[in-house]
Structure formats: structure tokens, C-alpha cells
């Protein structure tokens, strides 16, 4: 599966558009990690636990989007965008969307 946030896949020709595909996940924070983050809030600096959590969630959202693209028979997703929204205190939704397309090598 080729992925890109450009409107094209470089070196490939778009044969067919298959419409919007999307993937999302809602994650909550871990209580223990939240406590550690509270300590970090006094000293400042990177909250590594959150960085990892959000990165994992984003990969999960991307994976779901790719699964959907595979289901409609695409071999690439173009113009991918990410979006984050906080649903309630301590939970965040990570959302990935793009256009599923069929591409072929430019001869």
C-alpha cells in the first residue's frame, strides 16, 4: 500500500479514484502514567508516555484507514490528513483520512 499526503504518488499514474477512506481511534490516558505526567508538569519537559501513546494511536488510525482502502481494492492512498480532537478530559480521538486510488507504474 502506497501512502502519501501529496495529491499524487510520484512516478505513478492514477488510474481510478475509489473515494474517501478513513480510520479513527479514541484513546484514554493511563492513570499511572497520568500521575507521572503530573510530576513532569512541575519540572517541565517531554511527556514521553504521551508521545508514545499518541504515536501508537495515530498508527492504529492509519492502519484502519489502510484496511478500508484494501477492502475497496485500492493500492494507494493519497492526500492523507490527520486530525486530533479531545472528546472528554483525558481522552483524545485521532483521525486519519485520505483518498483511495488505484495507481500503476508510469511506463
Amino acid at each position: 500500500m502506497l501512502t502519501s499526503n501529496l495529491e499524487i504518488i510520484p512516478g505513478q499514474r492514477i488510474v481510478r479514484h475509489l473515494g474517501l477512506v478513513q480510520g479513527s481511534t479514541v484513546r484514554a490516558k493511563h492513570v499511572g502514567k497520568d500521575l507521572l505526567a503530573g510530576v513532569k508538569n512541575i519540572f517541565g519537559g517531554e511527556l514521553r508516555a504521551y508521545t508514545e501513546l499518541l504515536q501508537e494511536s495515530r498508527e492504529e488510525a492509519l492502519k484502519r484507514m489502510i484496511e478500508q482502502a484494501e477492502a475497496v481494492g485500492a493500492n494507494a492512498v493519497i492526500n492523507i490528513r490527520f486530525s486530533t480532537s479531545s472528546i472528554t478530559m483525558g481522552a483524545a480521538e485521532l483521525f486519519a483520512y485520505g483518498t483511495a486510488v488505484v495507481v500503476e507504474e508510469r511506463g
Binding site: 505526567a37 508538569n41 512541575i42 517541565g44 519537559g45 517531554e46 511527556l47 499518541l54 504515536q55 490527520f82
Partner: peptide
């Protein structure tokens, strides 16, 4: 992609 979460100090 790359991400980071950074907090301010007290």
C-alpha cells in the same frame, strides 16, 4: 511523521 508532547514547568 514525528510527534512530541512537551509540558511547561511550574
Amino acid at each position: 511523521g514525528g510527534n512530541t508532547v512537551i509540558s511547561v514547568d511550574y
